[in-house]
Design a binder for these strands. Structure first.
Lengths: 215, 215, 215, 215
DNA sequence: TATGAATGAGGTTTCATTCAT
DNA sequence: CATGAATGAAACCTCATTCAT
């Protein structure tokens, strides 16, 4: 089916923010799909509403583009984490919700997970180049700390747990389901993508965390 | 003049197995460090005791080399898992040992972890090409199944846990510490590599699994 | 809202002559430093008080800008040569002064020398495009001709010397010290820039010319 | 006229030295004609018997090629200077011959002169990168030193002249005739290329040097 | 007149792979 | 088996210049 509208003009009409965003959207997909070296500037440009030249105009070089992609991806999750409101829930329910949300978000944002994998293959050098790494950890930990504090105060969570350790455990469990899906599901012949499989795994992850934290 | 006893310019000449192994050793390092696209056939050849021609002779092309690297890496861990003997330990202690061993092995074999990451970025296509994937899951799961069965029989482990789920949880927790070290330690300013940090995390991982499994 | 007294963002706005001069100043430096092909329109524009658009507005294209730079550089020296007044000196002293002045001027105006080198690499095509080449030779030769005539009349200079030949010799000796400084000083490990080195070479150049001209 | 031999194969049959030399020959011409930035790797490759890829194979990058060109050009003149035999001539005649030879060589090797100009525009950075600059000065100065010593001993040359100063003067006078020909001949409307013009200028240069050196 | 955004053409460099000996 | 030389295709990047506002 062809659209009734005329062929799209190749040029974004002098809207730099839109041009940048358009490039970043495509680049995110390409880098997430093929890694840094595997992605092709030409391919990114071709899928863009603008030209290869503009990529270099805005981002300097391929690496600059990748840094911008990484930055924006992290900014996205940070923004969402910061706006999670769990205060109205009891600590146990809040923790269940937080873990469940993390699981859902990571499964829904495979590109983000894959970018993080790619960046880890590169030993985090691009993230390091980004100005505001320090801010990235604030929302995630702050929320978790509050829930844990409330849980201990209420006597439902045990003492002696470090919030960053806990966050690492949550991240590890959620991350794996997306990041290692290809090899794990192949080797163990196990579906890890269907709604049912996700729902099942989601409960196990939540359960694992809760059993670890509770009295 | 040619002579059958002429000085051999290269160490591994005329020992095909050693040549293959040498190429695979170097290729493992390069692919683990730079990913499939990022690795360079020229660089691999240069670090080898032999020449580029031999890479093509033995492995066909870059992808064939990568498949061979992946196969050998998985074969390595499978072999070790198969030889783990935990029968003399009680179920709880056996599980602790298995998890601890997994954690230690993965931390000691960063290259393997990174190859798995790379392969996941490629959605497992090379692993799929490998003939014997099916065999890969046998040892890991068999050992775990035995321990879990003994634990339930002894009344120390609860019912209703699927061994593959449990294996996935163990893998996720161990894998993350190596795979995501770069970004996580950067963002949370947390050491994840020192002996102390490893020992600490190791205990948390074991504890997490045990709390999940025990009555 | 627009206002006739709004803050001017750039210093030279609305002063065409100053804008032109500012562009030419920067362009002179860039072309002298990097040659015609090596200089970048973007770099020139960036260092300017105005924008790239103005370069094209005033000079048409990169080549037009270069021609203008060359023209202005030659105009500068012509103007100075024309205003040299040596009439009050005896012929020998006048020649010494002229040569010394030429040496000093060229050493003080490295950019000019380098532009001439660049133009010679381009076989003088830009200079040819300039309207008033013919005028360029007048002052230099006129002054020299007068000195030489006076010297012969006074019996201190020998006959048979062509003023253009003499001018060429003076130019060659002065030019080399600036133009070939980089390679010569490197190969012969000889300082050609310090005040002492310049003073020493200056005397040799003057001496060479005087010995050539005197009876 | 077309040759009776078949079209030349594009490949130099596995003769690396010939391939290198062929590339250097063409590159010398292109760099001499258009400068470093103005020369095009594509153009050089096109005129070569081999391909662009080979340029990078042998010289790494454009700059590496330029360094090699510069090195070879200097090696050429050094070799010739080293083999100049003037011992059989009296000092005055030897000096005349040396200066005349220098003048002739430079006029006959415009490419070399232009490369030196280009390298000076680049402030000698490529020459600096070359390993054996130190050796470059030996033959030129050694020959001159010997002549001058003999001349003083014979009482025909005056005392107090430094050989490097003298060499600089000779170089300056010879160099200018080639290097600045384009602008000088244009401005002063003077032929600097015809055999007659060259012969005339040659004598002036020799005369200038001799008058400077003689008692 | 002024400016940031945009562009096409072409520049330099790199890559996996093959060939000749 | 072994090696340095060679290759075409395609990768990344830059340039002078023009456009829309």
């Amino acid at each position: 089916m062809t659209s009734t509208t005329a062929a799209l003009p190749r040029v974004l009409e002098r809207d730099p923010e839109a041009t940048r965003a358009n490039i970043l959207d495509i680049a995110t997909e390409e880098f997430a799909e093929k890694g840094f070296s595997g992605a092709r500037v030409d391919d990114i440009a071709a899928r863009t509403n603008t030209s290869k030249r503009m990529i270099y105009y805005y981002f300097g070089d391929k690496e600059g583009l990748f840094v911008a992609v990484i930055e924006r991806a992290y900014a996205g999750i940070r923004h969402i984490e910061a706006n999670l409101s769990l205060d109205h829930l009891g600590p146990e329910q809040a923790l269940r919700t937080l873990v469940g949300f993390t699981f859902d978000y990571q499964n829904a944002n495979e590109s983000f997970i894959r970018l993080v994998m790619v960046e880890n293959i590169h030993r985090g050098v691009h993230l390091a180049r980004s100005g505001n790494i320090a801010e990235l950890n604030v929302p995630a930990i702050a929320t978790l700390r509050d829930i844990y504090r409330r849980g201990r105060a209420a006597g439902v969570f045990r003492d002696g747990i470090d919030e960053i350790d806990l966050h690492m455990t949550i991240s590890a469990l959620c991350f794996f389901n997306v990041a290692n899906r290809a090899t794990f599901s192949r080797i163990f012949q196990r579906d890890m993508e269907s709604p049912q499989a996700l729902a099942r795994r989601r409960e196990i992850v939540i359960d694992t965390i809760l059993r670890y934290v509770k009295q």
